[in-house]
Amino acid sequence: MKGYLGEFEELALLVISNLGTEAYGTSILELINAQTNRKISLGALHSTLTRLEEKGFLSSYLGEPTAKRGGRRKRYFEITQSAKEALHNMKSLRDELWANSNIQLG
């Protein structure tokens, strides 16, 4: 199914939308690692980003070279309209399920 979103994919999309125009490899990685207290490798992250791009949830463009990072360009990521829809679908599905459930902490 094309529109299916995995847990990590969802997380990545949300992080990218949180970062706004500053979403590129390292910044996404740092935010995920900081927020979730996980240690994700660059390889795993880029694999996911590539898959999301294939599914049409992400678009990317190259930035300008900077003095940092050995003068290399950044690849910025943006979420697409279909990603926004998929995220919303997911959220509403979850909200609905949560509302009908009786999970209570402690």
């Binding site: 590129y24 490899g25 390292t26 990685l29 660059l42 880029h46 190259l62 940092k68 990072r69 050995g70 290399r72 360009r73 950044k74 690849r75």
Partner: peptide, 14 residues
């Protein structure tokens, strides 16, 4: 792979 090398470099400096 330019962008990836850049990402790697940034993580390295950090």
């Amino acid at each position: 792979n330019e962008d990836l090398l850049g990402d790697l470099h940034e993580i390295f400096e950090d």
